[in-house]
């Protein structure tokens, strides 16, 4: 249901719980980037956070990773309040939540080998991975990780620039999985990729989730991608969650006008349902600007609800 404001389905144990989260920037005349956000993500599910640029989704992601302190509210991971933990305890807990970013190239040190990149979180979090024995162990673990994301285990001594965008994204997924996290934050993980590559990365993420029981917090602006991956969807606008619910419910029967507006705006890769269909449906909003000479255009201010044929 869309009315149950962010609670996870009862069958899933809550892994991540955000309560009353608020983040203000810039003091007296500052902005409220995140405004009273409450949301629960159940273990093993994929929650998709959807919104346009500036809506606060990046700040919300940084808050839940504890890269940013909230102005108010709490983030609980597996029942523990991240804000109440001592630094050492937070560090220990951190290995359980990892992140994959949009642009794999800018999130990798170009001077490190693939092996060093993937092993970085192991070395940070796992004392056994250090030293001479550690190095041997690391090569084995990195090789296995690379194979689990569909790469050749033998690429360990090569550098990021030798690989395509899709391959680099596989490397960053391997890196995120290196310390066996329970929650993976995927921040627009396929937005920089070609569609054929995107499809394969989405397949890989689904397979890894099934095999490892991962929980995904999937941030995206692309509703067609979200439909493929999400169990539940949270729609964010101007710092607030305007709608949270089961994916099918939110997409088929959106309760908030902004969600409707987002859905109507998605270009449909089917010419029978696009412009021609709308043109055939008559002189609606899509063609309204076609005759007048003055301030025509396509209704810049409000939603361009031209999807009459949908």
């Amino acid at each position: 249901m869309t009315t149950d404001a962010g609670t996870a389905p009862k069958t899933r144990r809550p892994l991540l719980e955000l309560a009353g989260l608020r983040k203000e920037f810039g003091g007296r005349h500052g902005t409220v980037a995140v405004d009273d956000v409450s949301l629960t993500v159940g273990e093993g599910e994929t929650l998709a956070l959807v919104g346009e640029s500036g809506c606060g989704k990046t700040t919300l992601t940084r808050l839940l990773l504890r890269l940013e302190q909230p102005t108010a509210g709490t983030v609980r991971f597996d029942g523990q309040d991240l804000g109440a933990l001592a630094p050492a305890e937070l560090r220990r807990l951190r290995r359980q939540f990892q992140v994959v970013l949009q642009d794999p190239y800018s999130s990798m040190n170009p001077r490190l080998t693939i092996s060093a990149i993937v092993a970085e979180p192991m070395v940070t979090h796992d004392p056994e991975a250090r030293g001479r024995n550690g190095r041997r162990q690391i090569r084995e673990r990195v090789g296995a990780l690379l194979e689990s994301v569909g790469l050749d285990g033998g690429i360990q001594d090569r550098y990021p620039h030798e690989f395509s965008g899709g391959q680099r994204q596989r490397v960053s997924i391997a890196r995120a999985l290196a310390v066996e996290p329970r929650l993976v934050v995927l921040d627009e993980p396929t937005s920089a990729l070609d569609v054929s590559v995107q499809a394969r990365i989405l397949d890989l993420l689904a397979e890894l989730q099934q095999r490892r029981g991962l929980t995904y917090f999937f941030v995206s602006h692309n509703l067609a991608v979200v439909q493929q991956v999400a169990d539940r969807i949270a729609v964010m606008r101007q710092g607030r969650l305007v709608e949270v619910g089961e994916a099918a419910q939110v997409l088929r029967d959106p309760q908030h006008p902004y969600t409707r507006q987002l859905l109507d705006a998605v270009p449909v890769p089917d010419p029978r349902r696009g412009r021609r269909a709308r043109a055939a449906a008559g002189a609606d909003a899509a063609t309204a600007g076609g005759t007048g000479g003055g301030s025509g255009g396509a209704g810049h201010g409000g939603p361009a609800t031209a999807g009459g044929g949908r």
């Binding site: 346009e52 070609d194 569609v195 602006h221 692309n222 509703l223 067609a224 507006q261 987002l262 109507d264 705006a265 998605v266 270009p267 449909v268 890769p269 412009r275 909003a285 899509a286 063609t287 309204a288 600007g289 076609g290 005759t291 025509g296 255009g297 396509a298 209704g299 810049h300 939603p303 361009a304 031209a306």
Partner: peptide, 30 residues
């Protein structure tokens, strides 16, 4: 995406008004 929708509608309506030919380069089948 909501701004994209407005710009696409604008391009279509301007083309219909002025009758220019458009060569559109895109990666997006939508």
């Amino acid at each position: 995406v909501t701004v994209q929708r407005q710009i696409l509608d604008l391009l279509v309506s301007l083309q219909e008004r002025h009758g220019m030919a458009v060569l559109l380069i895109t990666h997006d089948l939508g």
